[in-house]
Simulated assay, not measured.
Amino acid sequence: MYSSGTFFFLLFSSALLFALVNRVLHYRLTYLSAFSVLAAFGWAYIFQGDYLIPVAVFLGFYLLVTLKDKGWLKTWQAVSLTLLPIFLVKLDLNNHWNMIGLSFMTFRAVDVLLYRSKKDGHRFLHYFCYLFMPFIILAGPMYRWRTWINDINKPVFTLTREQFLLSMEQIFTGIIQKYLFATLIDTLVVQPWSHQPFTLSVGVVMSLAYSAYLYFDFAGYSNMAIGAGRLFGLNIPANFNMPFLAKNPQDFWRRFHISLSEWLRDVVFMPIYMNLMKLDFFRQNKTLAQNIGIFCTLFCMGAWNGLERHYVISGALFGAISVAHNMLQWSAKRSPVLSNWLDHPVSEFTGRILTLASAAASLYIFSGMSPL
């Protein structure tokens, strides 16, 4: 979508058109009316005539959230049924349900089930526009329901010059990241080296190159999506914050794919941890409860893409590395000698290198191009 010049022409034209129409109407055009039109056109542009599956999935999700609101389904039942299509697709049991953007659309549907309150209302258009927001339907970032409601309930649709220039700057940054840096890395390193027999040197080069490629490609897409959202007053969250500066695995996931990391923290880690803490054994072993929650959360970070071997292994590595770091922190709290050693500049620098090396190796496995 963001590779099309036609898309950007339509994007800027529609933003300026909405602003012009709103001015003619003396600022009576609401965000909801603007986004209803935008979502409808976005639907037509993205699915291009193949509407049956998106309609069926959307109506199924809407039915589940309605049944949950009426009290006919418990939250866990509605969430389980909402996740069912994506599980069937990931397990290759029913690819008829597969569609563009199914993963993030499912996550947004789950976010509604978990975080929509009665005061938010139950308007059909709120739900439709949120699930099918064209800027983020393909690959995120993970735009939360609470943020959407705050954005959509602004009094009037406006587009200031400052807002337009900031949007242009972020979109242009994304274009450079995705279509210059990511393309060069992919063309000059990833593609040529991916066909070579695996050796240690190939593994090192591919780990570094693929991680850099993934960062620039996904960060570029995210910046274009955020900039596009800003044209229409949406506060789509930042998805990357210079992960190459991460001090440790925990810090890495605060910087890399931030929106999904935070969503998984709220939806996976917190429920697991809080439920484990209800048991006497885990109340006496809080670190074990943390480690179980951390491992499950990071495992989901890799495995939600599918249950192919490389996704499962990379997810397990994400989790194992983060658990090892959590145990190291736990030990440092009980050992002044270890704590002082970890605070030494050489140890801190070594920790940064090990963090990036382990992340790069895990992402290389995630790519499916490694022998694992």
Results as ranks from 00 to 15, higher is better:
Glu308Ser: 14
Asn340His: 15
His310Gln: 08
Gly293Asp: 09
Met301Asn: 12
Ala246Trp: 13
Leu260Tyr: 14
Asn340Leu: 14
Phe240Asp: 13
Ala238Cys: 13
Leu338Asn: 14
Arg309Val: 07
Asn275Lys: 06
Phe256Gln: 10
His310Met: 00
Ala238Thr: 14
Asn248Tyr: 04
Tyr311Arg: 08
Ala246Val: 15
Asn285Tyr: 00
Ile313Arg: 05
Phe295Arg: 07
Ala303Thr: 08
Pro336Lys: 13
Lys333Gln: 11
Pro249Met: 13
Phe269Asp: 00
Met242Gly: 13
Met277Val: 06
Asn285Gly: 01
Asn275Ser: 09
Arg283Trp: 00
Trp330Met: 02
Pro243Met: 02
Cys296Ser: 15
Arg283Val: 01
Leu338Glu: 15
His257Val: 01
Leu279Met: 10
Val267Glu: 09
Ser259Gln: 08
Pro336Cys: 09
Val267Tyr: 07
Val337Tyr: 08
Glu308Val: 11
Thr297Cys: 12
Thr297Pro: 00
Asn239Arg: 09
Thr287Ala: 03
Leu298Trp: 05
His325Glu: 07
Ser322Leu: 10
Phe269Gln: 04
Trp330Phe: 07
Leu288Gln: 04
Lys286Glu: 02
Ile272Leu: 09
Arg255Tyr: 04
Ala289Gly: 13
Asp280Arg: 14
Ser335Thr: 09
Ser331Tyr: 08
Ser331Ala: 15
Phe299Tyr: 06
Ala289Pro: 07
Asn275Gly: 00
Ile258Met: 15
Ile313Asp: 05
Phe295Asn: 04
Leu276Ala: 10
Pro249Gly: 13
His310Arg: 06
Arg334Glu: 08
Asn241Pro: 09
Asn235Ser: 11
Asn326Ile: 01
Asn241Asp: 15
Ala289Met: 01
Trp263Asp: 05
His310Ala: 02
Ser314Asn: 04
Asn248Gly: 10
Leu342His: 12
Ser331Pro: 00
Lys278Phe: 00
Phe240Gly: 15
Gly293Ile: 02
Leu260Phe: 13
Asn305Tyr: 07
Ala332Gly: 09
Gly306Trp: 05
Met301Thr: 06
Phe244Gly: 08
Ile292Trp: 01
Met270Cys: 02
Asn241Glu: 12
Gly315Asp: 04
Leu288Pro: 07
Arg254Val: 00
Trp341Gly: 07
Asn285Thr: 04
Leu260Lys: 08
Met274Asp: 10
Gln284Asn: 10
Met274Lys: 07
Gly315Thr: 02
Asn326Pro: 04
Asp343Thr: 11
Leu317Trp: 03
Thr297Leu: 08
Ile321Gln: 06
Thr297Trp: 04
Ala324Asn: 09
Ala324Lys: 07
Ile313Pro: 02
His257Ser: 02
Pro271Thr: 03
Asn239Gln: 12
Val267Cys: 12
Leu298Arg: 08
Trp253Val: 12
Gln290Tyr: 03
Thr287Pro: 00
Trp263Leu: 00
Val312Leu: 11
Leu342Tyr: 11
Leu307Arg: 01
Ala324Tyr: 03
Ala289Trp: 02
Ile236Val: 11
Asp251Glu: 12
Asp251Phe: 12
Asn235Val: 01
Phe240Thr: 12
Phe318Val: 11
Phe244Met: 15
Lys333Met: 03
